[in-house]
């Protein structure tokens, strides 16, 4: 082959995203290039560093391509947080489509100017898994919960819960030993972490999701520019809007089997009605105001981002 690209990310190879999204992407690129591109896959941070450094590794060329959680580097890519606001997203396909559109319009040449972004997506609806039944924000009072993101932590605080910071792999141990009372993650991750065996209660929301995380698949800019035009086209054809929707959709599709497995165990899955969810949305409102204020400080029109994201997500939600 002519070109070897190193793809670095933090999960083990058999996890959903590496197996169902990244490998598929890499296989397609290899095939479409007629074998001229080889994508070497380095899971579990094998090339060194901690997950927050993945983005810099792509910028520096330590890896050619990285998959990372944007929220691992708080403060650097603030605009993407608009999708992480509580009760913003509806489903992963619509939100990922909106995310790519807004990325091209607002973030490509600003926050992400140092890398070449191949895909932008969000996971399926995040929900609450806890050792007691949660129906109202008041039920969260005093619980120690691992939050998934900066904004999820802010939301937990608003409800009187104590957000606990721990890496995802530490969650099962934290739950089994009572270091935390619950965690916020999407269904998709629960199977690998054995969450349904550790807690019996799961709380889903109607309409929009409690929270999500934003991801990017990012490539070293010089590496991309250095490719001959025909190989650039192979990368381009496999990246962008369609890939983002595929990635978000595929990741969210893994939610279903994981949810069924929890139900089959006889776990208590509470799906809150629209009215019940409204109470949660009311509690989360101050987060929006705080976020807009923060963005204004950075010279970003936060309200405009919120309005546009809402509009696009609604448009793409069937």
């Amino acid at each position: 082959q002519d070109v070897t690209l190193r793809l670095h990310q933090f999960l083990p190879p058999q996890a959903n995203v590496p197996k169902l999204v990244l490998d598929v992407w890499a296989d397609n690129v290899e095939e479409d290039s007629g074998g001229r591109i080889k994508v070497e896959r380095y899971p579990s941070m094998q090339l060194g560093g901690k997950p927050p450094e993945l983005m810099d590794q792509a910028i520096d060329g330590v890896a050619d391509i990285v998959w990372t959680v944007v929220g691992y580097t708080p403060g650097r890519f603030p605009s993407t947080e608009v999708f992480e606001l509580p009760f913003m997203m509806t489903n992963a396909r619509a939100a990922s489509r909106a995310y790519w559109e807004m990325f091209e319009k607002h973030m490509k040449d600003t926050e992400f100017k140092d890398v070449h972004i191949l895909g932008t997506w969000v996971h399926g609806p995040g929900l609450i898994h806890a050792n007691k039944e949660i129906r109202t924000p008041a039920d969260m009072e005093g619980l120690k919960i691992r939050g998934g993101s900066r904004l999820a932590n802010a939301l937990l605080e608003k409800m009187g819960a104590t957000p606990v910071g721990m890496p995802v792999p530490a969650v099962p141990e934290g739950l089994s030993k009572g270091v935390i009372d619950g965690t916020t993650i999407p269904w998709e991750v629960t199977a690998a972490l054995k969450i349904p065996e550790l807690v019996d209660n799961h709380t889903e929301f109607s309409g929009n999701a409690l929270y999500v995380l934003t991801f990017v698949l990012a490539m070293n800019k010089d590496r991309y520019e250095s490719l001959p035009d025909d190989l650039k086209k192979v990368i381009d054809d496999n990246s962008g809007l369609e890939f983002s929707v595929f990635a978000g959709g595929t990741q969210a599709d893994s939610d279903g089997p994981a949810r069924e497995a929890a139900a089959a165990r006889g776990n208590n899955i509470v799906t809150l009605t629209e009215e019940e969810t409204a109470e949660w949305r009311a509690v989360s409102q101050p987060i929006y105001d705080e976020w807009v204020a923060e963005m204004n400080e950075r010279g970003i029109d936060g309200q405009a981002l919120i309005d546009e994201a809402r509009m696009l997500i609604d448009k793409y939600t069937e």
Partner: peptide, 14 residues
């Protein structure tokens, strides 16, 4: 220098 330039903060205490 890089972290001064890019404004990255920690997760909790920021």
């Amino acid at each position: 220098q890089r972290y001064i330039g890019n404004g990255e903060t920690t997760f909790f205490l920021q």
